[in-house]
Design a protein around this nucleic acid. Structure first.
Lengths: 212, 212
DNA sequence: CCCTGTGAAACAGTTCACAGCG
DNA sequence: CGCTGTGAACTGTTTCACAGGG
């Protein structure tokens, strides 16, 4: 079963809304209701659920609990899947906070930094190792996802080391375009690029609105 | 001139590489060279430059300085464009650091928080106001982009207030799907969703690799 | 009726392939 | 030749529209 990128993103959103919906006392949901919650179209919801092989009933819609379970099966980490975070600065710290909470589906198995005042301390609820120990620590407690929140110049070498240590996907917060072997999935999160993009479209859409 | 989303993202990448290329002493660049740097195809580079109306020469390729200038004209903020950041916690602080640096194209005109120990202090190089003053401060120094790094429950009301205060685009770091009037551009950056997605594809691609 | 499931159409984005030119 | 510029083909995604069923 091949599931496209965008569908995976929406599934996670669907699941969040389904949990709220269930908490609000509903056992069933129609495609147009779920679409409203997620900001999608009913057809897209039905197509997505078809893609993952979940079927509802024309009379009652989709079973909320069953659908959440079905999405869980797709998104839930397998046993032993965890995150290695490299770079425990402000951004890394914010992410560590994030995955320290109980609501987190994934957990951080190891955090690394190079700064002496962070190494071998507990930073935002996670023990921080020296990057020198990266290979040794990940040999003990493997990780499948690596998060890079380091300065630009450190990104490529660390990405290479993470992949060599068995990481299969990277979330890259640096502006560097990483070179990785085929089969390693990289998602770039570039905040300055995002702001630039939002500013551009805010600008053009404002102009268009003013023209009306 | 209508420029799609993805093209804007790549333009920013092109510009970065063009600056390096220029610093390395080159005055011209061919589409396949720029494509290599950005991880795109030569055809895509040529198509993107066609979209923004920049032309090169078959003999010499594209003029590096001219192209950077052309991209600047598209992405450069107009006078008075700035960022309002709401939520000066760890994530907000990391972003404030980011836009405090000299390399930033955009700058933060105001940071807001609700916590007494942050309000009226300088947080990560930026004066932090109380969210109560949001309307008053943005009336003085308008912002075109709002960045939301607040807890989920605070996101929607603050988004509404930012838009009412004249913000035309939002970067939303919360998991909430914001309701905004038409014409306001929203970019969602959901870190837990991103990690989930990367984990999913790391998993499936590993499986596929093992099957070979 | 008003739903779901789904072929088929429409659309958007990317890549191909080649004319035209120095 | 090898490059750009671009119509045309292609690929992937979204939307339409309707058969089928309680």
């Amino acid at each position: 079963m091949v599931i496209p990128d965008r569908v995976i993103e929406r599934l996670s959103g669907y699941r969040r809304h389904l949990r709220d919906w269930h908490a609000a006392g509903h056992a069933q949901i129609f495609s147009h209701e779920l679409a409203n919650l997620e900001g999608a179209t009913p057809a897209q919801v039905r197509r997505d659920l078809m893609t993952i092989g979940y079927t509802g009933s024309p009379a009652r819609g989709y079973d909320v609990v069953g659908l959440v379970g079905h999405i869980d099966e797709i998104l839930k980490p397998e046993a032993g899947e965890g995150i290695a975070l490299v770079g425990a600065g402000h951004l890394g710290g914010a992410i560590l906070d994030y995955f320290g909470g109980r609501h987190a589906e994934y957990h951080v198995v190891a955090a690394f930094d190079i700064q002496p005042d962070r190494v071998n301390r507990v930073v935002h609820g996670h023990r921080c190792y020296s990057v020198d120990e990266l290979e040794a620590v990940l040999a003990e407690t493997p990780a499948t996802v690596g998060i890079l929140t380091v300065p630009a110049e450190a990104a490529q070498p660390l990405a290479t080391r993470l992949v060599a240590a068995g990481v299969g996907g990277l979330v890259n917060f640096t502006a560097v375009r990483l070179q990785v072997p085929p089969g390693v999935y990289v998602e770039n999160v570039d905040i300055s690029l995002t702001v630039e993009k939002v500013a551009f479209f805010a600008r053009t859409q404002r102009t268009r609105r003013e023209a009306l």
